[in-house]
Every structure is written in structure tokens, then in C-alpha cells.
Amino acid sequence: MALQGLEIRRSSASLRGGGTGLRKMATVAKYIDTSTCIGCKACEVACQEWNDLPNAQTSGPQHGTYQTLPTMTANFWNLIKFREVETQDHGLQWLMRKDQCMHCDEPGCLEACPAPGAIVQYVNGIVDVDPEKCIGCGLCETGCPFDVPRYAQATNKMAKCTLCVDRVSVGLEPACIKACPTGCLQFGDKTALLEVAKHRVEQLHGDGFAQASYYDPQGVGGTGVITVLKHGDHPEWYGLPKDPTVPTTVSVWKRVLHPIGFVAMAAAIFGAIGHFMAFGPKKPKDSSRETGGEV
């Protein structure tokens, strides 16, 4: 969704944004304290409702979990990941983490995207897909270290969490934050929320979780989602990659092509062909349901 009123910091396959003349605006962030999340899924439902997404066909129990779906889909952008982990020091842990787009400071999706303006990063850090410009090639998937963007067959577009940019740009908090009953979700300026995160992590250290930390991986320049983890040394227990970076294939390729804005269209075509050569025809994630395992 291209939003009027919010200036663009970066844009896929074009020179738009990226430097001069931008109004200064604080980077916003979502704070997620997994140690006080109760996995109630109010945020899932709020996301579905606000974004008017159709109901997903789910069958949670068949996978042996309370988790709604094995992974996010083009119509399900906010997913609580449930996982039972036996630990040495703290016995059984039932970990619940809200998964969604991380709104990377250096978004691999945007880097990988060959269609001009299809993925933009607003001046406040929100990374968004403009469906009018998206060509549905799916390259953003290859650029994202968090496995977030999803191809929707029905629209032939990519879809993901927008951090409720439509709400945020008019001064509201994202729908998930509004719905969260425990207050484990907060929204605001990233600098302020980092302080909240530091404080909570200290508390967790005091509670005997020596490895507690917050997740704001620098490999992607930091993220617009700050996630407090009791077991900070094991982000993979929560379904998070340990040291995410934008795949080098994507960044190298981009560095070559990025300045050549006018060949963006060609790049898009090249990209699509490249994708075909590398991975075969695009398979919509929606229909290839993974089972059990991780969740």
C-alpha cells in the first residue's frame, strides 16, 4: 500500500529515497516480550480483522500444537509460534513468540526486489509492499532472512505485515499492539523501546535467566521488532535465525544494479528468469503446508 503522507527512505530497484531532503522522523518499533506473552492469539485475530484477511484453513491439533498454522501465509501475517523445549536449568519451557515481518533496517526483501517501488521503506522504518507495483516474482522471499514474504496466488502479489502503516501514519498503534491483553506488546520510538527491553532483560537476569537478551540483529542493521528472549543464546528455539544477514547473492547483485534505475524493468524480468533458473517455477507457499516438526 503506497501511503501518502509518509516519506520514503528507500525503495526497491530505484533511486527514490536513500538520502537527501528527508524530514527527520524517529524509527518506530514493535516491542515483543516473549517472557510475558501468553500465546492468546488476540494479536493474530486483530491482524486478520484489521487487514480484512480471509480466514485460513487451519488444523492446528493435527500438527500436535496450539499453533494456528505451520508458518505464516499470504493471508496470515501474524503468527504465534509455540514450542516446547526441555532446558537444563529451567526445566520445560513452553515458548511462544509472535512472528511477523521484522521491518529490517536493511531489508533484504527490498534489496532483492527488481520492481521499482514495489517494496518501500518509509522514513520511520516501516517496510511495506505496494501491490500496484509488485510483479509477483517472489524474489523478495529469497532476500528475506526471516522467511516472511508470501506469494498470494489469488492476487499474484506478495503480502506481509505492514506494521499497520495505515494506522501508524494517522497516529494509532498497530492492531496487534492494541489487542494484546498482557502488555507484552508495545509500540513506539525504537530508542525508547530499547530502554524498556534493556530493563526487562536485566530483570530476567535477576530471575536466573543469565542468557536473556533482546533480539535486534545487526546483520540486517537492526530490526523494527525488538524481541525479548529469556533464552537469548538460543534464538532458534523461538524460530529466529541466530545471525541473520541478507544473502550475499542478493546484496552483490543489488550493488551492481542498484544505481541503474532506468534498467529496473529489465532487472525485474532478469530477476524473474533468474528465479526460475535457480528454483524452478514459483510455488505458492500457501498450498505447500509443512507439517509438525518445529512447532
Binding site: 487451519t58 492446528g60 491439533p61 500436535g64 496450539y66 509438525g292
Partner: peptide, 28 residues
């Protein structure tokens, strides 16, 4: 509200891992 059925779609039993193993019961 269809959403609530969406996020927890059906009835289930919760069975301890070890008992499930004993009885040959798998997830789902």
C-alpha cells in the same frame, strides 16, 4: 466469529509424549 474457529479449529486430546509412545499414538 469465524476467526475464533480459525485459530483453534477443532477438538483434541492432550496426551503425554511417553504415553503416546507406549500406545503408538502420533501427533494428529
Amino acid at each position: 466469529n469465524g476467526r475464533l474457529n480459525e485459530v483453534q479449529p477443532e477438538f483434541f486430546f492432550e496426551i503425554p509424549e511417553e504415553l503416546a509412545k507406549e500406545k503408538g499414538i502420533a501427533n494428529g
